[in-house]
Amino acid sequence: MKASLPVTNHMETRPDIDPTPEPKKKLKKVNKGFKQLAVYIMLILFASAFVVPFFWLLSGSLKSSSELFANPPVWIPEVFQWSNYKEAFTSFPFLLYFKNTLIIVFFTCVGAVMSNSLIAYGFSRIEWKYRDGVFILVLATLMLPFQVIMVPLFLIFKDIGWIGTFYPLIIPHFFGNPFFIFLLRQFFIGIPKELSESAKMDGASELTIFLRIILPLSKPILATVVIFQFIEAWRDFLGPLIFLSDNRLYTLSLGVQQIMSENDPRWALLMAVGVAMTLPVIIIFFFLQRYFIEGITFTGSKG
């Protein structure tokens, strides 16, 4: 909150600040070009800071072992060691783990979209008593550290015979996630009430309104939910580790470590799997990003 405090002061002193005198019109165009250039330079600076570690991963995955540890660092390997990838994929059951990961990712995405949109509808488009109180409860559940409920959860799943299956990783996603409920609720609130009301006049039920009116309008935010859920399930490590007890059900994020031997970790191969796990998501994100950003709303002014 430190960041916001100075801002608060600025806000309070706003009336004291004199608006700067109007600049000359001629300068404006030059100014604009100048501004754009400045934005570009800063963007490129920041972007390189963000991309360098990933570039390092990428180049590391193509290096020979002597290049990996060269000092000063080698940025672009002399010969691309594509064999690192081949070796990485064959040193653990990549395809099997990839398949398992996809299954989990797919069903959790479906679960997240289905359950959270229903729930968010109940928290935004229907007025009922205690609604906002219950919603605060939803937000409170965001704070639970997984480690604490991990063991009791394990016991529940064990009692219903789910340990060693994908169910513990999938089924809970069909029962809502506070983060998604919040995002969707904000979006739904922004959809004009009149749409629902006129449908109600025509005798539509809440479910019909939800399916026919709200959902079709909500694709951008649903895309957001899909992406976030995708990434979460794609990277999850502790969940699969605890709940899966069969190598054949393992996911990629668990398998990555299998490359490392205590007595001979193969760094380049590890980097290769890291790249292989990251690239597909980057591509998906690239295509979905526009809807993704459109979808998130805080003020409810979109729709």
Partner: peptide, 8 residues
């Protein structure tokens, strides 16, 4: 078993 790689 805990090991990957060669030990595995």
């Amino acid at each position: 078993y805990p090991w990957g790689g060669d030990s595995e």
